[in-house]
Computed example of a mutant assay.
Amino acid sequence: MRVYRPETGKLVRRDEPEPEPQRGEVLVRVRATSLNYRDLLILDGEHFTTGPGGLIPLSDAAGDVVAVGAGVTRFAAGDRVLGNFHSHWIAGRLPETLVGYGNGQDGWLAEYRAVPEHALVALPDSLTYEQGATLPCAAVTAWTSLAGVRPGDVVLTLGTGGVSLFALQLAKQFGARVVATTSSAAKAAKLTGLGADAVIDYRATPEWGQAVLDATGGRGADRIVEVGGPGTFAQSLVAAGTHHAEIALVGFVGADGPPVGFMDLFRSGASLRKIWVGSREDTEDLLRWLAVRPLEPVVDSVHPFDDADGAFERFRSRRNLGKVVISVA
């Protein structure tokens, strides 16, 4: 079978034996995978690793079960499946030890993968493989970031990455008002088309936190899906106002920003919640929601398996608006 492994910061395609499912494992024929920001960091050596070098990259995939090992009861050959982002987090509190795809164990950029049956969920027939492959990291992160959002709440999303776009779409389904930030008129038009009630150009308005307050009549955001980290957190605190907003700490794609002091946090009244994507139960809850309230994932481009390098470069360019997908079939 064909697989990709990193060597000195580049992807190298190899031919390796097709794995055989062991007891409790399922052999999946991978049909589609998608890229996330962490995949670039891992390839560039800028993300923590807990496993050996040269691991197959990518955490997200959808495919078909082609064989099962002894003792498997959750799936059978022919089932359509989706990989959960955390292979061993089933439900409840975050486990003390997590082994990530691509940085702790082999990921999904391969034609076949054998994984424990508990690491998979059923892929609904309403979703294509390409659409399903966009969900495990970005969509589940958006879902858990929005837990508890009620109709009429104000949700703030930052930029046009995968998490932010899913958060916008889901928040609108929840009946929330969405304020989004971006850096260009073209992206602003796309965000408006997806349902954003107000869009702020953070380049034209560096003090966009105040602009969020202005756009909401001084109220500010009830929930902030904070993907920028040090580059955006100070302004997110301003956008939170003083009415006890919740900031879901998702990522750190932004550059370094001004330091935030204790009194800034205290005066904001905001609570902070670190998001670790989600458990298998969270993924299943999201899929149940989508069965009732379907949405179409925003896909920027679909690349064939032999063009994995092109997919990474497309994602690296940051010109994309939506998920970059690799079709393996």
Rank of each mutant, 00 (worst) to 15 (best):
V3Y: 03
V3H: 04
Y4Q: 09
R5P: 03
E7Q: 15
L11Q: 10
L11T: 14
V12C: 11
V12E: 12
R13Q: 15
P21H: 02
G24L: 05
V28S: 01
R29M: 07
L35V: 08
N36E: 04
Y37Q: 01
Y37V: 01
R38I: 06
R38T: 06
L40T: 03
L41V: 03
E46R: 08
F48V: 08
F48K: 07
T49A: 05
T49C: 06
G51W: 03
P57S: 11
S59M: 05
V65Q: 02
A67N: 07
G69E: 00
G71P: 05
V72T: 09
T73I: 14
A76E: 15
G78D: 12
D79K: 10
D79V: 13
D79H: 11
D79L: 11
R80L: 12
N84V: 10
H86V: 11
W89F: 05
A91M: 07
P95T: 12
T97K: 14
V99A: 12
G102F: 08
G104V: 08
W108F: 14
A110C: 09
R113T: 08
A114T: 02
V115Q: 03
P116K: 08
A122V: 10
S126T: 13
L127S: 07
T128C: 08
T128M: 07
E130C: 14
E130S: 12
Q131H: 12
Q131C: 09
P136Y: 07
C137F: 06
A139C: 03
A139D: 00
T141W: 01
T141N: 01
A142P: 00
W143T: 06
R150Y: 06
R150H: 10
D153W: 09
G159I: 08
T160E: 08
G161I: 03
G161Y: 00
S164F: 10
F166Q: 02
F166A: 03
K172N: 09
R177H: 11
V178F: 04
A185H: 12
L191V: 15
D201Y: 10
R203E: 05
E207Y: 11
W208P: 01
V212M: 06
D214F: 05
D214H: 08
A215N: 04
G217E: 07
G218I: 15
G218M: 13
A221N: 00
R223A: 04
R223S: 02
R223M: 07
E226I: 04
E226G: 02
V227A: 02
G228H: 03
P230H: 11
G231L: 12
A234P: 11
A234I: 13
Q235M: 10
S236A: 13
G241H: 09
T242I: 15
H243C: 14
I247C: 01
A248I: 04
A248P: 01
G254I: 00
A255Q: 14
D256E: 15
D256V: 14
G257M: 06
G257K: 04
S268T: 12
S271G: 11
S271N: 10
L272S: 09
R273N: 05
I275T: 01
G278I: 08
D285L: 13
V292S: 11
L295S: 09
H303N: 09
F312T: 06
F312R: 04
E313G: 05
F315C: 04
R316D: 08
S317K: 11
R319F: 14
R319G: 15
G322W: 05
G322V: 08
I326D: 05
A329N: 13
